[in-house]
Amino acid sequence: MHELSLLRGVVDAVEGVAQGRTVLRVGLDVGSRSGVIPEALDGAWPVARQNSVCEGAELQVTEIPAAVWCPSCGCEREIDEFFALTCPVCGTPTADLRHGREFQVTFVDVE
């Protein structure tokens, strides 16, 4: 499960900014095409945070849907993570994936 190693990296990064303060909550944005399974993050979080400043912290995951830029429509269109890179409205192929690859810490709440 690579989610555990990803979360250990998150905990390491949070420890760097928490400066010894107790962490209450950590927010993550996770894109639907990132290869990360949000449910696996929830299961791995208790293990990843052991013996760290995140020991009792809650993990808040925000799932970011995949979206492409459609040159024909002139706007972003949300796509299912399993769709080919085409506009779901007009069918125009596009390789311009605007959202869906995210995996980033968005906030850290500390005491």
Rank of each mutant, 00 (worst) to 15 (best):
A48D: 04
V30W: 09
F83S: 15
P46I: 03
A84V: 02
R25N: 09
Q19K: 14
E111F: 06
F82Q: 05
P46Q: 04
A18T: 06
R98E: 11
P71R: 07
L28M: 06
M1I: 05
D29Q: 15
C75M: 15
E102T: 12
E78H: 13
T62W: 05
V110C: 08
E39Y: 00
S34V: 04
C70D: 06
R25H: 08
A48S: 04
R77G: 01
W69I: 07
F107H: 15
V47C: 00
C70P: 11
E76A: 08
Q60P: 04
V10P: 02
L6Y: 08
L7F: 10
R33M: 02
E76Q: 09
T22C: 04
V105G: 04
I64Q: 06
V110F: 08
L28R: 06
E15W: 01
H99L: 02
V26F: 13
P93W: 01
S52M: 05
R21M: 06
R8M: 15
D42W: 03
G74A: 02
D29M: 06
E58D: 14
V61L: 09
L24N: 12
C73H: 13
D109S: 07
E76V: 01
A95R: 12
L97C: 05
E39K: 01
A13G: 00
V89R: 01
V47R: 01
A40Q: 05
C73A: 14
V89G: 00
L97K: 04
C73F: 10
M1H: 11
P65H: 00
C54I: 04
A44Q: 02
L6I: 14
D42V: 05
D109R: 06
D12G: 01
V53K: 06
A48N: 03
Q104A: 15
R98F: 04
A40H: 06
G100P: 07
C87M: 05
S5V: 14
T62C: 07
T22P: 02
V68A: 04
A18Q: 09
G27D: 11
G31K: 15
V61M: 11
E3V: 00
L59R: 11
A48Y: 03
E15I: 01
G20H: 10
A44W: 00
L97W: 03
A57P: 10
R8A: 13
E76T: 04
I64S: 07
G20A: 09
E15T: 02
D42T: 08
V26D: 12
V30K: 10
I64K: 10
G74P: 02
R98T: 13
L59F: 12
V36F: 07
R49F: 09
P38H: 06
W69D: 09
T106P: 06
L6T: 10
E81M: 15
